[in-house]
């Protein structure tokens, strides 16, 4: 089973996000960068599938040079090798052009299974996984919490609003991860040592046979960014007893806020 994991390096979720002077990007100086949490589930699941079925796990990413840190972490968890597309022309890509680049890498080296995070928690775009599958002409199943591979087919439990659905697809296929799929392992010390010797191929767009103009110009552009007005603390409901506080809260919610 040859498995590819699509991985992005993103700001840690506890990061303070600030807007730069250009108004359309964020300040990156003080940010701690981590593997996108949904991609961690993807790495873990790929490793479990490899452990059960044999094969290898390749981490594929598009990003700046420092992305190798995130790839190295995935290698320390147990993945076999990494491919990073690092090209100035790939900066400022939207979801669709990123998907096009990833699809070009995946066309070069065929995989039986591709696993991607349902979304990256920076852009929150939910687009790359299904778009890569579309460009490769293979099926995708979104937001998977459980999977099973039998005879060149994958059966996935996907979450839908208000329930779950079980779908089956012939391999090669792509699925995206949802919380509940697994608990990602930590890299062990021997794992970290081994990862230092594992290969990370850093390639340009030309290396994967993609001329910069073929990735298409971004179809979506950020024209402005703002920090949403911060929620302010309001009133503490006071009262002589718990009973009195409950009465007062319900009165306020009904009469003033009009939400019940």
């Amino acid at each position: 089973m040859e498995i590819a994991v699509l991985l992005k390096q993103v700001p840690a979720t506890e990061s303070l996000i600030e807007i730069t002077d250009d108004g359309i990007s964020i300040k990156t100086d003080d940010i701690k960068w981590v593997i996108n949490p949904y991609d961690e589930f993807a790495v873990e699941e790929a490793l479990q599938i490899k452990e059960a079925h044999g094969g290898s796990v390749t981490i594929i990413s598009v990003g700046p040079e420092k992305t190798t840190e995130a790839i190295r972490t995935a290698l320390a968890m147990g993945a076999d090798k990494g491919i990073l597309i690092n090209d100035p022309a790939a900066e400022g890509c939207d979801g669709l052009s990123t998907a096009r680049i990833l699809a070009a890498v995946l066309k070069e080296t065929p995989f039986d299974l591709i696993i991607a995070g349902q979304r990256a928690v920076d852009d929150d775009n939910f687009q790359v996984g299904p778009a890569v599958a579309e460009f490769l002409g293979i099926p995708n199943i979104s937001m998977v919490i459980k999977q099973e591979i039998i005879d060149a087919k994958i059966r996935c439990h996907g979450t839908i609003d208000g329930g779950t659905v079980i779908l089956e697809a012939p391999l090669p296929a792509l699925f995206t991860t949802q919380r509940g799929l697994n608990e990602p392992r930590y890299a062990s010390l021997p794992g970290i040592m081994k990862a230092k010797k594992k290969p990370i191929d850093i390639k340009t767009l030309a290396d994967i046979g993609l001329e910069a103009d073929r990735i298409g110009k971004p179809l979506t552009r950020i024209v402005a960014m703002q920090i949403p007005p911060e929620r302010k603390g309001g009133r503490m409901i006071t009262g002589d007893s718990a009973q009195a506080k409950a009465v007062e809260l319900v009165r306020i919610l009904h009469e003033e806020a009009k939400v019940i």
Binding site: P11, T13, S15, I17, I19, I24, I26, V121, D122, D123, D124, K217, P218, L219, T220, R221, I222, V223, A224, M225, Q226, I227, P228
Partner: peptide, 13 residues
């Protein structure tokens, strides 16, 4: 974006 820490205005071409 960024888990709601940013609101971005997007133009579509």
């Amino acid at each position: 974006m960024y888990g709601g820490k940013i609101l971005a205005d997007i133009a579509l071409d």
